[in-house]
């Protein structure tokens, strides 16, 4: 991983990490490392998730009751703390995604048609 590569990655906007975590958990229980991996892979490595920042966010979501956690065993037989989406978490995800879509559409309109690359 070169430095250049890292600089091109987008830093996450405040509040978006929560949304990404919730979205990732739709596919089933996952542990912290898995969530970090999934975000990075799904965004095709565009998004920079500092793994350390993930945990306070998980902490926060858990406190709000949107996700629940339980210790379990990972695919390669390691102990890990697995997070699942709760009922309220699911509702929250719908709400947040709608909001986010509206926001990005609005911003897209303001910025106008995409400039041609190159």
């Amino acid at each position: 991983m070169s430095t250049r590569e890292e600089k091109e990655r987008l830093a996450l906007l405040q509040g978006t990490l929560d949304l990404l975590i919730l979205r990732t958990l739709v596919f089933g229980p996952q542990h912290g490392q898995g969530i970090a991996r999934a975000i990075q892979q799904t965004s095709e490595d565009t998004l920079l998730v500092e793994h350390g920042a993930l945990y306070p966010a998980l902490q926060r979501l858990e406190a709000q009751g949107w996700i629940a956690a339980r210790w379990g065993t990972s695919a390669n037989n390691r102990k890990a703390r697995f997070y699942t989406l709760t009922q309220t978490g699911r509702k929250q995800l719908v709400k947040e995604s709608t909001r986010w879509r509206r926001l990005s559409t609005a911003i897209g309109r303001i910025l106008g048609p995409e400039a041609k690359e190159g």
Binding site: H31, G32, Q33, G34, A36, R37, H51, Y55, Q59, S74, N76, R78, K79, A80, R81
Partner: peptide, 16 residues
């Protein structure tokens, strides 16, 4: 508990 979770994360990442 929190520290254990971080440790688990690091292990999983290292293995990957």
């Amino acid at each position: 508990d929190f520290n254990a979770e971080i440790e688990a994360h690091l292990q999983l990442e290292i293995e990957r």
